[in-house]
Design a protein around this nucleic acid. Structure first.
Lengths: 333, 333
DNA sequence: CTGTTAGCGCGTTCAT
DNA sequence: ATGAACGCGCTAACAG
């Protein structure tokens, strides 16, 4: 910057002013500065800017896994919004470990991020209560952080699950099985509540299987289910992973969908309509979740009253996408 | 830091030394420093460290899309390796636009990244030749940047495609169709070369369809193909997206796989063995690609002779995963 | 072993 | 309208 100033025959301050438009500079000098910038192809140093005491213009993003399409799509949307705000994204992954989450969060603070978007590790317990994070706006996605001051963007898990199960009931099913991951995971828990709400309203009996993250266990469970005479005639799978494992097992066992077993999953995915039969699912507005979360964060960063106001809570609607696995459109098999 | 030093009754330099272990400090004082650090729960500022002229301990990661599972898995692996090296990852997305790529790359340099991992935008042309990037180690993944000095990690696209097509030929197919995206994309181009190599070696006639990124066009093409009496009896789809669109169309047209039409795709995915029939694919070592790229970059950053040496080139093997869509294991249909 | 000085690149404050 | 000096948080170089 010194070099640029010398070359243009001005002081460093003038260069700074030209770059930021902080104050008026005469046509003549600003032209000289611009050409000097060109010739030395000068690049401002964001780090120094940040150090000077203002914003670093970067936010943190913490996700459990990136290879989960749901998280990845959120991250993509967040990255896009951040760019619009001339803001960089520092990405880290936790593999669902609260300890890693805490450590990564600290690292991000050391890097002077202005704010943080977080998909909390799924264990239910969170180590982020510590006051060391009090100064940083944080938005939680997909899962809330219990008893925290963090803003949150969630979806209507309970309503979505309830609606899906009701739909199965309308198809005439009276024995419907819920398959999910560990019940400590918030989303599973909430979707279970929706399932039970629908089951109870119809006066039916609930039947559940957890540990859908274990492919082998899921297979065993479905094998026994299939052997029973009075076994369920429909399955509601509470997330993408348990859907996959259940469908895999169903395929191996030669169970026909939806005739012998109707199926609705939670979470849409690219190949859902390529499957045979095409899968009915509860779809989350994935991109919008990331987008809203990012915009919520930037709103915080813009507002100066940030610390005083209440946590914002946004709950986005889900959509029941009816394809064929639930029994709909089954006229041309 | 000043506060910490005062509280411990020492100079700032001593604090710095305790933190970094740069020089020996007496037991006594270091204990005092540690407790002062605790009490004020001091957090070092990485930005200031970076400004001081050394490493920023951060790397850039540029991907076209994050919702492509291939890219996302690479990114996850990279993030994991970076953490091991106590290094942050600055993530940006380009939506396959070379202009965005250039712009993002500049932004990252302003942020003083130590190195960059890049999945180049697919157009074939790259704007990254500019000498402004000469000082930064760069590793390209999945696609090379033509005429560049960048290190690269690629996979055996040609061999993989060739092997897959050979396999179809061994199943007795003599009319095999190649479906891909725009031929400017490096991976498509290389896989096409592998396809043609196998086709020519067997003395067959090549038949190709591009624009597999367009679902409607793919459907139209397959409809016409299906109507022909002498149409292909097998399809090789050159990537995940064209596989999806082709499979979707095949489903709609009621074409039975593999009896009426055998199928092999490039790129494995979670649901490949849930499809009916389970999909045969050429699998890339996704996590390993990201991992090797990251390690290649950190090797550069560690070595001081970085600028002088030749670009490193790594080509990882692919694996033909035979399920049922190619005609294998078709004994229990 | 420890403290002092200087400066990384930038922007604010005050003086011109 | 423009420039000089100071300091953001930190550490390499040199004293002591």
């Amino acid at each position: 910057m010194r070099d640029v100033a010398d070359r243009a025959g001005v002081g460093m301050m003038t260069v700074s002013r030209v770059l930021n438009g902080t104050a008026r500079v005469s046509e003549e000098t600003s032209r000289r500065v611009y050409s000097a910038l060109e010739e030395l192809n000068y690049r401002p140093n964001h780090l120094a800017r940040a150090l000077r005491g203002f914003r670093s213009n970067s936010i943190g993003l913490i996700v459990p896994y990136l290879y989960d399409p749901f998280f990845a799509s959120c991250a993509h949307a967040i990255s896009a919004v951040a760019r619009q705000h001339a803001c960089s994204v520092l990405l880290t992954t936790t593999n669902e470990s609260p300890e890693a989450e805490l450590e990564e969060c600290r690292q991000l603070l050391r890097r002077q991020i202005d704010g943080l978007i977080l998909i909390p590790a799924g264990s239910g317990r969170s180590l982020l209560g510590s006051p060391e994070f009090a100064g940083t706006p944080i938005v939680a996605i997909d899962r809330p952080v219990p008893r925290s001051r963090f803003d949150r963007v969630l979806v209507q898990n309970q309503q979505g699950a309830c609606q899906a199960v009701q739909h199965l009931i309308e198809h005439g099913h009276r024995r419907i099985c819920f398959i999910g991951l560990r019940p400590e995971v918030y989303t599973i828990q909430t979707r279970l509540a929706g399932y039970e709400q629908a089951i109870e309203a119809a006066g039916l009996k609930s039947e559940t299987f957890f540990h859908g993250e274990d492919a082998q266990a899921t297979f065993e469970f479905l094998r026994q289910l299939h052997a029973r005479r009075d076994g369920p005639t429909a399955i509601f799978a509470a997330n993408g992973l348990s859907s996959r494992h259940a469908l895999h097992a169903i395929g191996l066992l030669g169970i026909s969908v939806p005739d012998q077993m109707a199926f609705i999953g939670f979470d849409d995915f690219e190949l859902a309509d390529v499957l045979h039969p095409a899968l009915s699912v509860v779809r989350q507005p994935v991109e919008r979740i990331g987008q809203e979360a990012a915009e919520m964060l930037f709103a915080r960063l813009a507002g100066d009253t940030s610390s005083s106001s209440q946590p914002r809570k946004l709950m986005l609607p889900v959509e029941l996408v009816l394809r064929r696995s639930c029994g709909c459109h089954n006229d041309h098999p």
